[in-house]
């Protein structure tokens, strides 16, 4: 923005070049999306007929909704969609509470070992999930859990093939705690102290003072954690071999193995992508503000 706002002093050609560059960059990101969207309304023949030209990205020629009808009519996409919605909503919902409370404790309360735990948090940030996924899988494979058998709640010997194996390990999230922690630390301590003098308990300070002042970071964490959960692939592949608790991403992979129609695959991909885009558009304002406010590079 700052480059453009000083445009008065720049030549028209320089500004033109800048805009052209930005447009080019935007197209690099937009083209795959346009291709997916366009192809989802085409037959295989139409896709290949347009593949060598700009027509691959523009919805021209014969268009059809048959791909969507096929995707919705074959396979369990709606079931998988519901699974993904449940997994994402519960993980994000519980995550907001757990992670913000953890960050509140680290950022605003005094207790022995607080600095050590905060440092540990940073260590956790740099460990890739792939590195711990196998040991974690072995752990959950042997953890007693709950399940339904013939309509009755029973104790099971493993968490595998459940929805909660895709939820509980991801509720507490080091990066989310870190984002909350950074944001909470920027809120003046005087607010807490004024509330304590007003008779608040730490939990009331959290609820009445910290949370209402932190809407942007709640939006950011929702989007980041929600996106990560929605796109979760590796973990459900290794922990959910059955269909009942399968999420969308794994569902698509399975669907991909059963069809040779690219249009079907693109229709499936579009159905997966649209909710994420919609959420981002709705929360965009909050998201951008929080990324700026918390001083975290987006």
């Amino acid at each position: 923005m700052s480059v453009l706002s000083t445009g008065r002093h720049q030549s028209v050609s320089l500004r033109f070049a800048l805009y052209a560059l930005m447009l080019l960059l935007a197209l690099v990101f937009v083209f795959p999306f346009l291709f997916m969207l366009t192809a989802s309304f085409r037959t295989n023949e139409q896709i290949f007929a347009h593949s060598g030209s700009i027509g691959a990205f523009v919805p021209t020629g014969e268009l059809t909704t048959a791909n969507y009808a096929y995707v919705l009519g074959n396979g369990n996409i709606l079931h998988f969609f519901l699974n993904s919605v449940i997994i994402t909503t519960l993980t994000v919902g519980l995550g907001l509470i757990v992670n913000s409370l953890a960050a509140f404790s680290l950022a605003r309360l005094q207790w022995r070992g607080r600095e050590a735990v905060a440092s540990l948090l940073v260590v956790l940030l740099v460990i890739p999930f792939e590195a711990i996924s196998v040991p974690l899988m072995l752990l959950v494979a042997h953890l007693p859990g709950l399940g339904f058998e013939a309509g009755r709640l029973v104790l099971t010997r493993s968490w595998l093939n459940t929805l909660y194996v895709q939820i509980l390990p991801f509720v507490a999230n080091a990066f989310s705690i870190y984002l909350f922690y950074q944001f909470f630390r920027s809120i003046p301590k005087d607010f807490d102290e004024a509330a304590y003098i007003d008779g608040a308990t730490p939990l009331q300070v959290y609820r009445h003072v910290i949370v209402p002042s932190s809407k942007p970071v709640f939006a950011t964490v929702s989007i980041l954690q929600g996106l990560a959960m929605w796109n979760q692939y590796l973990w459900p592949v290794i922990t959910v071999p059955g269909e009942s608790a399968r999420p969308l991403m794994v569902g698509m992979q399975q669907f991909f193995g059963h069809t040779t129609e690219w249009g079907n695959v693109m229709a499936y991909a579009t159905i997966i992508t649209v909710p994420v885009l919609a959420a981002f558009v709705i929360f965009q304002r909050w998201f951008v503000r929080s990324v700026i406010g918390s001083g975290v590079k987006g």
């Binding site: 005087d190 102290e193 304590y196 002042s213």
Partner: peptide, 20 residues
């Protein structure tokens, strides 16, 4: 005693009014 039990009123330099 915690601050609430002492029943004092305090005015801060920063005012510390809850912004929301």
């Amino acid at each position: 005693w915690d601050p609430a039990r002492r029943r004092i009123g305090m005015v801060f330099q920063s005012y510390a009014l809850y912004p929301h």
